[in-house]
Amino acid sequence: MNAVLEVRGLSKAFGGVHAVEDLGFDLRAGERLALIGPNGAGKSTSFQMLMGELRPDAGTACFEGVDLVGMEPREIWALGVGRTFQITSVFASMTVAENVQTALQARNGQSFDPFRRARALHRDEAISLLERVGMAEQADRPASVLAYGDVKRLEFAIALAGEPRLLLMDEPTAGMAPRERHALMDLVSGIVAERGISVLFTEHDMDVVFGHADRIMVLDRGRLIADGTPDAVRADAKVRSVYLGSGAETGHA
């Protein structure tokens, strides 16, 4: 399979501390790839560099052959990269449908259109997207009154409106109850599979990671220490020592 995202030698240091060192990996088409690691391992830094929020000291990150390094978030979007945030953010002063419609009008280059009525524009397409994420009944509710899990699904629908071929999801289930987490990730898995979207995500919840990733990469102190299928990573001694501490490793032996 072809690589959708090719990352090579991505590095970032903050005042002498190497937050991420020489990160390199391929993300294949249609793959759901999880990036995990203990706190301070460099997950967020890696993500911010891929999202255009932080400029790496060195390295490249090519999406379909185009290097994302140094690009603005909007330019990365224009290439076909969608995003969701750890702290969910939607357009609070609009209805659920209008949130998606606003993203659709941006995709169609109509953000400066002063003539049409926005309420009717792309309404049908928005509703069908909302149907797909199970939010159609709430289409005309204000986004500001939604339950947290629904805000997450709305944000996902907004990201889908940009027709991404790659989704970057920063802790997609942060702040949700355990059962809701799996419901959301089932939804995500189903939709990305039918649309052929590749996904790179970070996550704290190991159940979510091992249940929904095709492949897992483990970061520790800025370096990649493991990269493989969930089973291989689960069995990896280095990963176990990082997550369980060195005491557990000796106890195990």
């Binding site: 909007r74 357009f91 609009m94 606003t102 953000s111 002063p114 926005a118 524009l121 907004i158 409106a161």
Partner: peptide, 20 residues
């Protein structure tokens, strides 16, 4: 209009607007 909505989107959440 769509322009008014884009303007409001930028006010509601600047980062969501940018990545949309």
């Amino acid at each position: 209009s769509p322009f008014g909505y884009a303007l409001r989107a930028a006010r509601d959440s600047e980062k969501r607007a940018r990545v949309s």
